[in-house]
Design a protein around this nucleic acid. Structure first.
Length: 423
RNA sequence: GGAGAGGUGGCCGAGUGGUCUAAGGCGCACGCCUGGAAAGCGUGUAUCCGUCACAAGCGGGUCAAGGGUUCGAAUCCCUUUCUCUCCGCCA
């Protein structure tokens, strides 16, 4: 959520900045300011009413104590009236507050000034690229063919057991997955992240806290019998560890990491995007999250991008970093860098990480604060990034390292796989 | 799934209708004391909303959450939720 203060005092600026997302917030902002004014006026009236009622109750108490209970009759009458009035005011307050909240959650985060305008992926800005995208070898096979050739991933079997988008990893394929998870977690630990194993099912409050609800309702698997959601990313349980809490300033930044399975319904996806491992309903990912001081969060964002770059270097994968444009930016994010690796057989870039600074947007929803040395409580900033998403890393590893002798495993992974090639 | 007991401040814990403006303790912060420290003593120490300058002060809400009874609720009633114990089932 945005800070209501900025909407009150700089509504025009909010509207202007949201235009970068191709959003016209004029109406929402207008209604919000109105609801805010009504809410405050009603609150004041209700408070005054309650203050008087409290005063009366005190006086009546005094009378009873000194045995003059019968003198309280008149006061009781006024009290009853106040109570009636309070009920009306409370109802009004509840209703205007509900409207206010509903409007508040409709507004996405304000894009950082560096976010370029644009409508789609095509308008994202290239920040830099590292490594040489290999030209397609003449007989290069896409990873789904390699998977079949070496019998390491079975898509049909997964489809039988569950459905499309639920692959079955087998033999060295399964072992390679496990190796990647262990590698990523070890690296995260070395970089100072605390390893967690969070729940894979979360409640509504958590899904709301990180901004999946209500914006992405329908993208998550939902278990109505228990009203729980399967996590689309470990970001949700991880960030929500700090929901409703007040950290000490010196505890910042908090750095945590988790491996988790991720579940996404991916309603509306189709075509080459969903071929093979490119887009799945269930996949594995290691996620890193930081809770940072507002003054340092952009440094932290850079640090996270550099950390993920390091992982990709160790995996010897060519990659590029893009800055998402307004139209591609996630609802809760102020600034996002995507990391893409080049899959040489498909000859396309695959997104393997998305690193975002949410500033105080998630914190405002989940009341994540820190106490400054001066004793003042303020909202912390939250950030997260994939480090990394496995299926596309696997796809690129397979495609880029294929050769006559099979699939070559990068040096960094060999201690984890226990073999240096698949073939 | 069945039966029972509970949820009070950062933590422990008292509190069964008005003096709760929540006792007491621990922890923490600051001060006194000390060569320095410990002990001791003193002071302070939740959060949200409103008013307002995002100050002080003042008003209101919050004793798991929501609703109700009452002039008045941490305390009584209802619903929900979570925790613990026992039984059942089970990796």
């Amino acid at each position: 959520m945005l800070d209501i203060q900025i909407i009150r005092e700089h509504g025009e600026e909010v509207i202007r900045r949201l235009k970068v997302r191709n959003m016209d917030a004029t109406e929402v902002v207008g209604r919000l300011r109105e609801a805010d004014a009504v809410r405050r006026k009603t609150q004041k009236e209700l408070d005054d009413n309650l203050a008087r009622a409290n005063e009366l109750a005190r006086q009546i108490g005094e009378l009873f104590k000194s045995g003059k209970g019968q003198q309280a009759a008149e006061m009781k009458q006024e009290s009853a009236l106040l109570k009636q009035r309070a009920k009306t005011l409370q109802d009004q307050l509840d209703s205007v507050t509900a409207e206010f909240r509903e409007l508040m959650v409709k507004l996405p985060n304000l894009p950082h000034p560096s976010v370029p305008p644009g409508n789609s992926e095509a308008d994202n800005e290239l920040v830099r690229a590292e490594g040489e995208p290999l030209p397609a070898a003449t007989n290069a096979l896409p990873h789904w063919d390699l998977a079949r050739k070496y019998d390491i991933i079975d898509f049909e079997l997964g489809a039988k057991v569950s459905g499309a988008g639920f692959p079955v990893y087998k033999g060295r394929g399964a072992r390679l997955q496990r190796a990647l998870i262990a590698f990523f977690l070890d690296e995260a630990t070395k970089a100072g992240y605390t390893e967690y194993q969070p729940p894979l099912l979360v409640n509504e409050a958590s899904a709301f806290g990180t901004g999946q609800l209500p914006d992405k309702d329908g993208q998550m698997y939902h278990l109505p019998a228990d009203n729980l959601y399967l996590i689309p990313t470990a970001e949700v349980p991880l960030t929500n560890l700090y929901r409703d809490s007040i950290l000490k300033e010196e505890e910042l930044p908090v750095k945590c990491a988790a491996y988790s399975v991720c579940f996404r319904r991916e309603a509306g996806s189709y075509g080459k995007d969903v071929r093979g491992l490119n887009r799945l309903h269930q996949f594995d990912k290691v996620e890193i999250v930081q809770v940072a001081h507002p003054g340092k969060s952009y440094e932290v964002l850079d640090e996270m991008v550099e950390y993920v770059s390091g992982l990709l270097r160790k995996l010897e994968l060519p990659f590029r970093i893009t800055r998402l444009c307004g139209g591609d930016l996630g609802f809760a994010s102020a600034l996002t860098f995507d990391m893409e690796v080049y899959a040489s057989a498909q000859q396309r870039w695959l997104e393997v990480s998305s690193i975002s600074n949410f500033e105080a947007y998630q914190s405002a929803r989940m009341k994540l604060r820190f106490r400054s040395s001066a004793g003042k409580n303020s909202l912390a900033h939250t950030l997260n990034g994939s480090a990394l998403a496995l299926p596309r890393i696997l796809a690129a590893l397979l495609e880029n390292n294929q050769g006559a002798g099979g699939i070559r495993i990068p040096e960094a992974l060999r201690p984890y796989t226990g073999f240096d090639s698949i073939g």
